[in-house]
Nucleic acid binder design. Structure first.
Lengths: 191, 191
DNA sequence: GCTGAAAAGCTAATGGAGTTAGCCGACCTC
DNA sequence: GAGGTCGGCTAACTCCATTAGCTTTTCAGC
């Protein structure tokens, strides 16, 4: 009986495939094991339990989003950077709606633990947002408020789109353009 | 053996209590039955299955949010109405974070059905938003884009807050004020 | 190359959740 | 008061996560 050659990363790879195909609900240990060609209990050699696997999946997804966002922002600043960041964010959801919904469900309050690595992954995205906001010259706390608002806008649209919460799929680009415009003009307009 | 006097509505009442106390993950048929003083299979006399119960819970929650939003908008218009609407929306999440997260998880793509009633509940909130936007004199499609953006902003902030996605709980009010400002100034500023 | 320990797999077994089938008593209507 | 419907129950099944304990592969070091 040759070994399957699994690893924590390989298990997450399989989990991502499942989530791509069937949404967050399709992620079960039994399904992962089946696809990996292994008996279910074998997964416990690589992952502590289902909760940890979900956390690892979320971390991977957040990292992927941060990668896209970071790349989009490179070489840009101001409105241009912000617009590119938000578009990159949404593009991830359009490409991988199942993954985005899987990242959601994990963020259930009550599952507060999940470790440092998870917080780091979120922080990285926040840092990218703060960098994109740098050109606006926000003072201390104002930058935090701006990053939170930016995140809320991008995330809110993403959740609704990933869940099919908008009626017609058409014209979603235009709706998103307005949302981007709101963020930018809100930063440009004094309160 | 006297009857428990259950009904679909009563089952949803119990489900909401569980969700208030333990988040979305606490909603199981076994828990509902236990709290209602009934054996688990008895619930199937009132509800088709767990999926339907989740849908009913989501509908109830959306209705509650719409009630608050509708009341907040009464007698107001323009920026005043928009601000009141967004604040009312967030106040629901602050009061019932568990309920809000329960509404989320149900919106998994793949569970597309859930029936007409669910769509109606969402439409009602959209109508309230459209009414609040009336004073801005938006033409046709523009109103839809505005409502979507408004919804994305409020929903995104709500999700993050309900999931504990923001670091410090302090100053969240200020962050939300900025988000409201973005929405309003985005509507006031020509593109 | 041999040996032995660690890593990675397996089977068996447990417990909890959802769901179905089929039974029976309570309640209401006539 | 009789009969039917409705709401509850128990028993049984499936699927899933998880644990325990065993076996086999792999590989480092002699």
């Amino acid at each position: 009986m040759p070994r399957a050659g699994l690893s924590p990363d390989a298990v997450v790879d399989v989990a991502l495939d499942l989530v791509d195909e069937g949404g967050a609900g399709a992620l079960t240990l039994a399904a992962v094991a089946g696809r990996a060609g292994v008996a279910t209990p074998s997964l416990y050699k690589h992952v502590r339990n289902l909760t940890e696997l979900r956390a690892l999946v979320s971390i991977r997804i957040m990292d992927e989003i941060s990668d896209r966002a970071g790349e989009a922002v490179l070489g840009r600043s101001g409105d241009d950077a912000l617009r590119a960041l938000m578009k990159a964010y949404r593009s991830y959801v359009v490409d991988h709606p199942g993954r985005y919904s899987a990242m959601m469900q994990e963020a259930d309050p009550g599952v507060v633990e999940s470790g440092r690595r998870r917080i780091e992954a979120g922080q990285r995205l926040v840092d990218i947002m703060l960098a994109a906001l740098r050109a606006y010259g926000l003072e201390g706390g104002e930058a935090i408020h701006a990053a939170r608002s930016l995140r809320s806008a991008a995330h809110g649209f993403a959740v609704l789109e990933a869940a099919g919460g908008f009626g017609l799929p058409e014209k979603l680009d235009e709706s998103y353009e307005l949302l981007i415009h709101m963020v930018i003009s809100g930063l440009r307009t004094p309160r």
